[in-house]
Structure formats: structure tokens, C-alpha cells
Design a protein around this nucleic acid. Structure first.
Lengths: 343, 343
DNA sequence: GTCTGACTTGTAAACGATTACAAGAACGAT
DNA sequence: ATCGTTCTTGTAATCGTTTACAAGTCAGAC
């Protein structure tokens, strides 16, 4: 026998479907009637169909979180925070992954119109007009965890990358480092461009010149290693000149990385060349993800407030679901520095 | 104006709703009619409602992957593999997280009856009769990535932990290590108990006795560190006796860990005590997750085939959706060893 | 010109829930 | 006894699709 429907329950209990629905939704009913319904429900193992319910009531009680790369530990921090807020509000959280291309993100946002969920938190890697348009026109509330132009007219909660960069640079200065290199992710991404700008400003404010700057292919560990090779030179530090010549250390004494995965990749390349962290080269990551704490040496990292951003994003989403007419809010979360052993 | 429905499109195109539906689903229609429909769809920005559609056709074209802890990198490996297979088959993958308690898992499986998705891949941490019952009775196909008894009558794909443990022990032996300790996760979990058993067998087969065995509170990095403290002694290696006395190294020369997070935690504790990896103590992890490659030193890890398990699980799920009457299959994926610098 | 068959399109009944509305029951006040 | 309230329960419409079935159109064969 296939899944029982509310009609079968009603028949079994000898009442109407309306009564079953009422009992199940806690509307007033006599105790005797409620008891009969409950017994029938129990007996048949009835579970209401969410599709039918949401078709009727127009809500799914599900929210979606879309991230670009599940392998990036910054998203687990964010995910945990979002999960906590939305589940406390009685929603299920489902996570989907978009991939790095903006067309996938657009497709996802457009797809929300199909009614999969009551709202979306999206953390887009790349933003273009299409994406902004799709977000504006989306039938369900969307909040962006990241930076999109104000004209998008959408709730956002973003990090303060320039401020974060400043924290990083000043921390290195305080540690006596002045020959600072920068490893960024792709500059055609939202975080990539923000961090490039932030780095330039922070260096300028401190009258420093970067001793190296490379752009990794993406925000992954592998790209970090490749960037490290580029930054440190493929062959300059090979066996026989294992970092003990002046050329090895004179060039740079600190590296700031656009995220923790890149930083860990860089540390591996430094290690491969016999350069000690932090003795010879200090390394700073960004995101302060779980990886920062797990890496060795533990990574000093700019905490861009992923957890708080996740929390605030979830709260904005819930508030907008509550009241769609409220003016869009743009929240900026301030960074802090988590100092560990890599500097 | 609220979301357009198929009826509005039909009116705009001057045709019936049935025709709109047919055109949208690629059923035969005259070119003229198709063109009018497409134009109306375009103009109104119509997107079919997935809830209504799936209510009617009884399928959602969504599949769910449920994992216990998004912070565990083994799941990202698995997630990627599952995603690839199901999206190639035209399904959306949504990921939910259950938490460590079996009651949450049971609730999730029961909840599938609400029709959120057409199938479920679940990787349960803890299994009890309730969970097995809920899986057996689940209205949508379920495949378990992990070990459940055959009587559950469900498709499973699991790792071969004992074989993996054997690989680990024999590798250490080949490296001349004989004083092996074991850091497990909770033994009331599926992987915990499998690995405990595997470790015992592997040690016995090689006529070795464990020099230490501790059970971490869970499979996380923090628990790994705590376990390291317990294993190595809170105070025995403090400053002043930094691993240079015989007591420090004589006790153990290798640690096998039940997963990579625990292994990295252990390496941190070893580092804190000045014990060099691998020179003084070799460390082996399990899962061969991205973290193994990222850790420093890179972690030798038993590859329990997470990617392949994910792939096979997804394939089993698709096959069962295709044909629910096929006999349950129980696939075992064989482990390999990824040797890196920690041993 | 009629009939057959193939093909196109429309009408209306599902899918499984919620809920507006109506009807009936119970009860106290007059 | 009658009336009006209030409370409980049932009937049926509805959400937005898909699809079985019916009806209509058209071409070709006789």
C-alpha cells in the first residue's frame, strides 16, 4: 500500500479531512475527536506531504544556503551560524553548491522561483549585472553574504576587507616585518577585488611597497601552492640553496594571503624551500576558519566575521520573509585579528 | 503582480493550459503554437512551480545527502562525488546536516516521507534499531554510506576499515615502528567501532601490542587534541623535559588515528611537546581527506575510498529510484594507503 | 462526398493538503 | 418552548501543475 493520505486517515478515524487537518495543526477540537485522529495517524504511519502543504499555504519552511565551494572551510563556519539561526526559527536549512561560475549562480537564483524554498542566502564569488538582475527579480527573499552594489537594492552583509588588510599589515609591522608580499585569489571575484584594493590601501597608508604580488587561479589549497611557486621562484630554493643564502630571505619576510587555504598552500611551499615560519617568513591568512587553527604552525588569520556574517544574513532573511516591504539593509561586519604562531 | 501561473501564460498566448504544459515539456505541438507559448513565457517571466509539479508527478528531482558534521573534510570529498553523479543524472543535490545524535537522523529519515526529495544518501554516525526501522519503512529510496546490518535490507556502500587498519599497521612496521598507539573516535559510533575492531585484528595479526589507546569524544580536531593530551600525558612533556628524555620517546613511536581531524589534533599535541613527526613519532590518519594533504607535515592517511563510496552510493540510489524491486546491494570499497611525510 | 486515421488542441479531473463557509449541536437566557 | 450564541464538524473550493479523455481538424482513400 502506498503512502497514506489525509483522506485515508479521515476514513480510518471516521471523521472528515478537515478535522484531521485541524487536529494536526493544533486547532481547537474535542479531545475525543483528537484522540481518534491521533490513533489513526499513528496506526497508518501518516506523515503530511510537504509538497501539497506548501502548494496550498505558499510556504515550504525551507531556506537555502548557496555556496561556491564546499571545500572552502570558511563556508563551514558560515553554514553553522546560518543553520543555528534558521533552525531556531523553525526552518530547515538546505545547502546547495553553485560552482565558481556566475552563470550557475544566476541559474540558481532564477530557479528559486520554482518554489524550492522560502528564501536564499547566497555568497556569490563573481557578480555581474545578470546576477544582480536575477536577485532583484527573484520571487523569494534573497540576502547576499558578500558585496554587491547598493543599487541592487538587496539585503547584504559583508566583510570589511580593507580594514582587515590594515589589521594584517599593521600586525606585521609591529612584528618588525616590512618586506611584505601578497597572495590574492582571482581579482575578478568579489573577495579578490576587495582584498586587492584593501591591500593596496593598507600598504600605502603605512608607506610600504609590496615585494611581491601574485594572483592565484582560485581560492584553493592547490592554487595556493602554485602561487607559492610563482612567488618564491620554482628553482631558486632547490636543494643545495635551501633558504640559507641571503637571496632566500632578503626578498620577503611576510606573506599576506587572501584566505586560509591559500595561506596554508604558501606555508607548504615555504616549508619545501626550508624557509621557517614565522622565523624567516611570517604568514597571515584570512577568514580565520577552522583550518587556521588546524594548520601547522597555527595560522594567524584575519577574522572577517564569517560566523557573524552568517548569523546576521540569516536574521536579515528571516526579517524580510516576515516583512517584504522593509528597506534593504546593508550590514558591514568588522574584522578582528586572531593571532597565532605563524607570525 | 504576483508570480505568473500557467493559466496566465495560457491566457496571454491564447491557448489552453494543457498546451502550455505540453510545449514546456517538449511534447509534440505545431511550431506556431510553440512559438506563441514561448513568447508568452518569455514575456511574463514564467517559471513553473516545482511544488505543484512534483505534487502531480510524484517526483521532485531533488536528492538529499545527509551528513553528521559539515566540518569534517571527509564529507566534502564524498559530497563532491555524489554531486557529480546525481547532477549528471538531472537531479539537484541538497545537503542537510543531522548532528551527531541518532534521534536527529531518525527524524530526518522519517521526514523524507514529507516528500522533500526523491531519495536520500545518509552517512550515519550512530545506528540503532529505530534508525534501521525508519530506513526500512522510508517511503523514498535510501542508501546508507556506512555500515548497517544486512537485515536492514537496504543498499549500502561501506569502507573496509579492518583492511585499512592492516595497511596502516603494516606500513608502520615496514618503517620500523612497533610501539603503536591508537586514537579512536567514540566507539559507540559506526566508524568508531569498526576501527576499534580493525585495529585490534591488525595488531594481533602482526603480533603487536598497542602501547596506548584512547577514545576521543568525537571525530573533531578539538577532540583530537584532547585525546593527545590524554595519550601523551598532560604534564609529562612540559618545558624542561621536552621530549628528549627516554620516557618521552620510548613509550610510543607511532600513532594511528581514526580520521584525519584526530590525526592533525594529535600532531599538534606532539608538536607542543617537541616531538618531531615523523622522526620521533609517525602519525597515520584515515579518510585521506583534503586536510591530509594540507596538514603539515602532510599526513599519511588510509584512503577509505570516500570519493568512490560517494559515487557508488549515488549510483545505487539512482538505480533504486529506477527500479525499487531490485535486491539490496552491499558494496564494499577497498582502501588504499596514501603515503605522505608524516610516516 | 463520406469515411478513416492521424494529429492537434481543449476540457476537466486528478495530486494532497488547507481553509472559508455552512450546517448542526449544545446550552443558557428569556 | 423559543431564540440566539458559541462551539464543533463537515462540505467543497483552492493552490498550480500534469494528463486522460474527448473533440475537433485535416488529408487522403474510396
Amino acid at each position: 500500500m502506498s503512502r497514506p493520505t489525509i483522506a485515508r486517515v479521515a476514513r480510518a478515524a471516521g471523521v472528515s479531512v478537515a478535522s484531521v487537518s485541524r487536529v494536526l495543526n493544533g486547532l481547537p477540537a474535542t479531545e475525543e475527536m483528537a484522540e481518534r485522529v491521533r490513533r489513526a495517524v499513528e496506526e497508518l504511519g501518516y506523515v503530511p506531504d510537504a509538497r501539497a502543504r506548501s502548494l496550498k499555504v505558499g510556504r515550504t519552511f525551507q531556506l537555502t544556503l548557496a555556496v561556491a565551494d564546499v571545500g572552502n572551510p570558511v563556508y563551514v563556519t558560515m553554514m553553522r551560524a546560518v543553520e543555528e539561526v534558521v533552525s531556531a526559527a523553525g526552518y530547515r536549512l538546505v545547502v546547495t553548491t553553485t560552482g565558481p561560475d556566475v552563470v550557475d549562480e544566476v541559474a540558481l537564483v532564477r530557479g528559486m522561483a520554482r518554489g524550492y524554498a522560502d528564501g536564499l542566502v547566497i555568497s556569490p564569488l563573481r557578480v555581474d549585472d545578470d546576477l544582480i538582475k536575477s536577485i532583484r527579480e527573484c520571487d523569494v527573499p534573497v540576502v547576499v553574504a558578500g558585496n554587491v552594489p547598493a543599487r541592487a537594492g538587496v539585503d547584504t552583509v559583508r566583510a570589511n576587507s580593507p580594514k582587515g588588510m590594515l589589521l594584517a599589515v599593521e600586525h606585521l609591522l609591529a612584528k618588525g616585518r616590512r618586506r611584505i608580499a601578497f597572495v590574492n585569489g582571482p581579482v575578478d571575484t568579489v573577495p579578490g577585488s576587495a582584498r586587492a584594493k584593501g591591500f593596496r590601501e593598507a600598504m600605502k597608508a603605512n608607506e610600504l611597497q609590496a615585494v611581491g604580488e601574485v594572483e592565484a587561479a582560485d581560492f584553493t589549497f592547490a592554487a595556493g601552492r602554485a602561487a607559492g611557486k610563482e612567488l618564491l621562484g620554482e628553482s631558486a630554493y632547490e636543494a643545495g640553496s635551501r633558504g640559507d643564502g641571503p637571496a632566500a630571505t632578503a626578498r620577503l619576510d611576510a606573506v599576506i594571503c587572501a584566505n586560509d587555504l591559500l595561506a596554508v598552500g604558501i606555508m607548504h611551499e615555504l616549508g619545501a624551500r626550508g624557509l621557517a615560519v614565522p622565523a624567516e617568513v611570517a604568514v597571515i591568512g584570512m577568514d580565520d576558519s577552522e583550518l587556521a587553527e588546524q594548520s601547522f604552525p597555527p595560522l594567524t588569520s584575519v577574522n572577517l566575521g564569517s560566523a557573524e556574517r552568517g548569523r546576521r544574513a540569516a536574521e536579515l532573511l528571516l526579517a524580510r520573509i516576515e516583512d517584504d516591504s522593509r528597506p534593504p539593509r546593508r550590514i558591514v561586519v568588522q574584522p578582528t585579528l586572531s593571532v597565532r604562531s605563524s607570525t
